[in-house]
Amino acid sequence: KCITVNYMMAKDSVKKRFNGEGDGMSFTEFTYQLVQGYDFLHLYQTMNCKIQLGGADQWGNITTGTELIRRKLGPEAEAFAITCPLITKADGTKFGKTESGNVWLDARYTSPYKFYQFWLNVSDEDAKRYIKIFTLLDRETIEALIAEHEAAPHLRVLQKRLAEEVTTMIHSREEYEKALEASNILFGSSTSEALRRLDEQTLLQVFEGVPQFRIARSELGTLPFIELCAGRTNIFPSKGECRKMVQGGGVSLNKEKVTDPMRIVTEEELIAGKYLLVQRGKKNYYLVIAE
């Protein structure tokens, strides 16, 4: 009753669609501004929410909310709309909840590790934009970071600082440090202790995509390492190749160098009670699951 059809028709976003931009407008799309407006009114009344932020494409919907609040609660009920140019990902798509490859603020949907990785892996151009939008760093700091990044892009100074600032802001300094440590396990010279500190969910996320093998838990305690790698699994194509690489110092179990190919693998070595991490060379990882 508070919002007229005339008011809704006057919105630029509606007029453009009625004037032939796109494929017309469904009734659902037309009335969406009422739903979003009522949502703002509800948040205003129940949560004392006075400002709604969004992309520039949401201007019409958000101002319907400010108008509804004013008409329903009187002119003294102040509510505000702030929009910014729509922020897109490198592929040109927006950060919509229906898009793939999205990041959520809620750790249940995007873990702190994956959240950190998202910002760490953005392109150089996106990093230059995002650090201005998503962090509270001052202009001088940002300009200095961009200059430092341009002098040595391979160091990814900008992405590292962006990931640090945003992860700390959303999840805490502690979660940022955990995410950093988890990243170092895969890409750096991390320790066995750091690996054991990972919770199971993060461990599986860090090693998502690496080859996985399953062995019987009952074999642990009698199973030689060489048999694990070239008998029960095909981490190595042959025992001879496994032995040779162990002797050359190129094989690790749970981030600890293996010096004897005949050493027995025990149940006590399982990470999170069920995983063994074998590393062959610098970059080849294999996850063995004991069942």
Rank of each mutant, 00 (worst) to 15 (best):
K15L: 12
F18R: 10
F18L: 15
G20S: 02
D23G: 08
D23M: 12
G24E: 02
F27R: 10
F27M: 13
F30A: 03
F30L: 02
Y32G: 05
Q33D: 02
V35C: 08
G37Y: 10
Y38P: 02
D39W: 01
F40Y: 13
F40E: 06
L43H: 02
Y44C: 03
M47V: 02
C49F: 02
K50P: 08
I51K: 04
I51E: 01
Q52E: 12
G55R: 00
A56G: 14
D57H: 02
Q58R: 14
G60F: 15
I62S: 10
I62M: 05
T63S: 09
T63P: 14
T64Y: 06
G65I: 06
T66C: 10
R71F: 13
K72R: 13
P75F: 03
P75Q: 11
P75Y: 07
P75D: 14
E78I: 14
A79T: 13
L86W: 10
G92I: 09
T93C: 04
T93L: 08
G101A: 06
V103C: 04
V103Y: 03
L105R: 05
D106S: 07
D106P: 15
R108A: 12
Y109V: 10
Y109P: 12
Y109L: 09
K114A: 05
K114Q: 10
Q117F: 01
F118Q: 05
W119L: 05
W119H: 00
N121W: 01
N121D: 08
V122I: 09
V122P: 01
V122F: 05
E125Y: 01
K128Q: 15
T135Y: 06
T135E: 09
T135S: 07
L136K: 14
L137R: 11
R139H: 08
R139F: 09
I142C: 10
I146K: 12
I146E: 11
A147I: 04
A151K: 15
A151N: 09
A152C: 11
P153V: 08
H154N: 07
L155Q: 14
R156Y: 00
R156N: 05
V157A: 13
Q159N: 09
K160W: 03
